[in-house]
């Protein structure tokens, strides 16, 4: 499925070619840029290749060999890793997916509401609350962890996904509010001023003007939320007890123990590779929205 889908994305992108140089006009420049980008890609891909190679090789070779080519190749680590823990990785993937998707919905909805207020509405105390909102970005989470844990424990939410998901619906991640505020402020104000004159409510302006014009930033927020939630391990580590509720990251952390006995490192790296697949394709697909976004912006102007 991935191949055709990815191809669709590619075609999509070429269809909306808009900015700067294109491949036809200056072939030499384009060749140079491709060469540079491919060179850089290799630099970026190296760790992935290394992980891939580690997942195929015997554990004895993983830490003391600098070569990328395994001496013997085995794919055993994949089924071994998948079923290695008491609960299969399929469950972990499902749990991660549910948490990540709910987080995306929550973050995009709640943060865009708050960002609209900060970016476009006049109200007393706006700057004060904006500063407070930014302040919530600044406190290291290690010191709020325990009071927060006690709070969620009292709500009866520990060992459920609620502590991981509900805050997203309450715009607890100020990063995204701030991000959207910056982008909302970049949208021409005449648009909503005109709408305001026509008697549009703030809600309609938000829903009919702001959101459609903000696809690039909403897509960005969706992508980041998905990826960061998928990668997050500290929240799940603290709030999820039962292995059946574990996320992929927690599963990976249950594989090896640097202090104790035997560890299945190849299995760990095999599962690490698999854990990248969903986020890689989520990323690839959501780029479409980035592109749609400009098309819309162009039309409206």
């Amino acid at each position: 499925m991935t191949d055709t889908a990815a191809k669709a994305v590619l075609d999509d992108d070429r269809g909306t070619e808009v900015v700067g140089l294109d491949d036809k006009r200056k072939p030499w420049a384009s060749a140079l840029i491709h060469a540079l980008l491919i060179g850089a890609s290799i630099l970026m891909l190296y760790p992935l290749l290394w992980m891939l190679s580690a997942s195929f090789r015997p554990s004895q070779e993983i830490f003391n060999s600098t070569s990328l080519i395994p001496s013997e190749v085995s794919v055993d680590a994949y089924p071994r890793g998948w079923f290695g823990l008491r609960v299969s990785f399929g469950v972990f993937f499902w749990n991660s997916l549910v948490i990540a998707l709910l987080s995306v919905i929550g973050n995009v909805m709640a943060c865009s509401l708050a960002a609209f207020a900060f970016a476009r509405l006049q109200f007393r105390g706006r700057n004060f609350w904006f500063a407070i909102m930014l302040g919530t970005l600044m406190l290291p989470y290690h010191v709020t962890l325990i009071p927060q844990y006690v709070l969620f424990l009292n709500l009866g939410w520990v060992n459920t996904i609620l502590p991981l998901v509900v805050p997203k619906f309450l715009a607890a991640d100020a990063f995204f509010i701030f991000l959207m505020v910056q982008f909302f402020r970049g949208i021409p104000k005449e648009l909503d001023e005109a709408a305001m004159m026509d008697g549009c409510s703030p809600w309609r302006i938000y829903w009919k003007i702001m959101l459609p014009l903000s696809m690039p930033v909403l897509a960005t927020a969706a992508i980041f939320t998905f990826l960061w939630t998928w990668d997050d391990f500290f929240g799940p580590l603290i709030y999820l007890n039962d292995m059946r509720t574990f996320t992929v990251q927690l599963g990976l952390r249950s594989f090896v123990d640097s202090q104790g006995g035997q560890s299945d490192w190849a299995g760990l790296f095999a599962m690490s590779i698999l854990s990248l697949v969903p986020i890689f394709f989520f990323f690839l697909f959501f780029q479409r929205l980035l592109i749609q976004g400009i098309a819309t912006t162009g039309m409206k102007r």
Binding site: L145, I146, Y149, V150, L153, V158, F233, L237, I238, N241, D242, M243, L250, R253, S254, F255, V256, D257, S258, Q259, G260
Partner: peptide
């Protein structure tokens, strides 16, 4: 109910649970 995790992650998790009386 068994719960297993690697060494590095075990201690902050345990400390949080003990501190939360859980």
């Amino acid at each position: 109910d068994g719960e297993s995790i690697g060494w590095d992650d075990y201690w902050p998790r345990l400390a949080t649970q003990v501190a939360g009386r859980n």
